[in-house]
């Protein structure tokens, strides 16, 4: 059995051909190793990084952009969105800070991707790029 895929690991978008013969899976068309592992994963259980936002308790920063630290199964994406919609961030987080340890029955964490200490209204004309210190 042969299957055509487009690799989505980077903007190059390599056109992959995956051949499924007996036990082995062989991938051609990839310009780097990420293409091969992508194709194999894609056959078993397609996984994606989920990026979205989480509500916060801060008026100057009402929504915090977040992403999964690693990929989650594509089929879990809507369930994860449901769980995320119930979250409210109550601390000022910075990129990389964990919002949720385990998102929607996966082992994948949800992390902040923006800096809430840079509220919308931070000091103008000063060298200060944001209020430091995490408020609660």
């Amino acid at each position: 059995m042969e299957k055509m895929l487009v690799c989505i690991q980077c903007p190059q978008g390599c056109k992959l051909t995956v051949s499924h013969s007996g036990e082995g899976v062989s991938v051609t068309g990839n310009k780097c190793p990420r293409g091969a592992s992508y194709a194999q994963q894609e056959l078993i259980n397609p996984c994606r990084t989920l990026t979205t936002t989480v509500r916060t308790a801060f008026v100057d920063f009402p929504l915090l952009p977040v992403r999964t630290l690693g990929e989650i199964p594509l089929k879990s994406v809507f369930g994860a969105m449901g769980e995320i919609s119930r979250l409210v961030v109550k601390k000022r987080l910075r990129p990389g800070d964990v919002v949720l340890e385990k998102l929607y029955n996966t082992d994948v964490a949800l992390i902040a991707t923006d800096d809430m200490t840079m509220g919308e209204k931070y000091a103008k004309g000063s060298e200060d790029y944001g209020r430091d210190g995490i408020l609660s």
Binding site: Q9, C10, P11, T49, T51, T53, P65, R67, T113, D114
Partner: peptide, 19 residues
């Protein structure tokens, strides 16, 4: 641009726009 895919060339990582 909260989606990921930024920075592969420069940082070798798939970052989101804000990151």
């Amino acid at each position: 641009c909260i989606h990921d895919g930024f920075g592969l060339v420069r940082f070798g990582q798939k970052l989101s726009g804000p990151e």
